[in-house]
């Protein structure tokens, strides 16, 4: 699989480490969230067959985190964004 890095261009997926569903960006507030909310965040996944937004870390590259939208049935990569941009758009790290 080739990941089209927004800054570095096409890179082999082997340079990256896979973390999982990009919803992990939305960590609940540790001071207010219930145990159930944290359980759901940490352990439960949509795990779709089809388009999946997921976190890849460019460990053997520029060390950036990317949000890759990939079809889990065909392995086709549909979109690549910097996780930083996605997180900011979601209102995190103001």
């Amino acid at each position: 699989m080739i990941i089209h890095h927004p800054i570095l261009g096409p890179r082999d997926a082997q340079e990256f480490v896979y973390l999982g569903d990009a919803s992990l960006i939305g960590r609940p507030d540790g001071m207010t969230a219930s145990i159930e909310e944290f359980h759901n965040y940490t352990y439960l996944r949509d795990n779709p067959a089809g388009a999946h937004r997921e976190l890849w870390y460019h460990e053997q590259g520029d060390r950036s985190w990317l949000v890759v939208t990939r079809n889990t049935v065909t392995h086709e990569i549909l979109q690549v964004e910097l996780a930083r941009d996605v997180a900011r758009a979601e209102g995190r790290s103001k």
Binding site: G20, Y43, R45, D46
Partner: peptide, 16 residues
């Protein structure tokens, strides 16, 4: 598993 259990509205502690 995740696909079939979604029919019951469940999200599982699993990835395929």
């Amino acid at each position: 598993s995740s696909k079939v259990m979604a029919h019951a509205g469940m999200r599982l502690p699993m990835e395929s």
